[in-house]
């Protein structure tokens, strides 16, 4: 029973999957691209960005591909006009939430938010922009956090807790005031729990956390969490 493969279709392509896999995992195996931002292989799922929403036939609701497990006979659509439209709105909202100016960003050219915006055709932001002005914390020897570029995907928090185990980072406040905090809202240089492992900078999808004086392309390493997870299981 439990090991029988599941048959389903994604965008009219017939696919087979193992039990307990998510829609996103199956889609990846078959080379079907579903945009994601908060999801990262090797970390727990967060389901916060809502970019990976897909339609399932027979339901009017939308489902997050990163956390919804596949079931037999599912008919999944990943790319309807509505989904494309919604993804553009989601990206526009993220772009308007804080201060995103690509030309002065360290991550320019290496930014997942930028890449997705280009890919999905976000050519303007129809909402009022916030232009936040949070102070830059660059006192650490080489790690810098610029909260103006943060999209609250919490990858850094999860990699710090789950992979590194230091739990230096977490969220503070809530709603629109939510921020990444270091210990008790400390400056990074004063953090006693941080191991300076750079994993947060490696997984940050934007230029919010980066390594100073390093080529951004060298810093970013999306696979770090998955790599370490697999190594640990050896």
């Amino acid at each position: 029973m439990t090991n029988e493969p599941i048959n389903l279709t994604i965008d009219n392509i017939k696919v087979t999957a193992k039990q307990d896999t998510t829609i996103l995992e199956v889609a990846k195996q078959y080379g079907i691209n579903i945009p994601t931002l908060c999801e990262l292989e090797g970390l727990s799922s967060y389901s916060g960005c809502r970019l990976c929403l897909v339609e399932i036939r027979g339901s009017t609701k939308l489902f997050a591909a990163c956390t919804t497990p596949v079931t037999s006979g599912m008919e999944i659509t990943t790319n309807s006009d509505k989904l494309k439209e919604y993804r553009k709105i989601t990206l526009s909202l993220l772009l308007s939430e804080r201060t995103h100016i690509c030309s002065v960003c360290v991550a320019n050219g290496n930014c997942e938010l930028q890449d997705l915006s280009n890919e999905l055709g976000v050519d303007h932001v129809p909402f009022e922009r916030e232009w936040t002005n949070h102070t830059l914390d660059s006192g650490h020897n080489f790690l810098v956090i610029d909260r103006n570029r943060c999209i609250l995907c919490t990858r850094c928090i999860r990699v710090c807790q789950e992979t590194e185990g230091a739990h230096t980072l977490d969220l503070k406040n809530r709603g629109k005031d939510a921020q990444i905090t270091i210990d008790f809202d400390a400056l990074w240089k004063n953090s006693s729990s941080c191991t300076s492992c750079r994993k947060c900078a490696k997984v940050c999808p934007t230029g919010a956390i980066y390594v100073d004086d390093d080529f951004i392309s060298k810093t970013k390493d999306k696979n770090i969490a998955n790599f370490l997870l697999k190594r640990r299981q050896l």
């Binding site: 230096t168 977490d170 503070k172 406040n173 905090t181 210990d183 008790f184 809202d185 729990s193």
Partner: peptide, 25 residues
């Protein structure tokens, strides 16, 4: 205040960021 939070975090062995996150939520 933060001093009390720090004391609590120490006593119940929870990460500072976690305690701060809960208190501000």
């Amino acid at each position: 205040n933060k001093n009390v939070l720090a004391y609590i975090a120490e006593a119940i062995e929870l990460p500072a960021s976690h305690v701060f996150g809960v208190a501000t939520f």
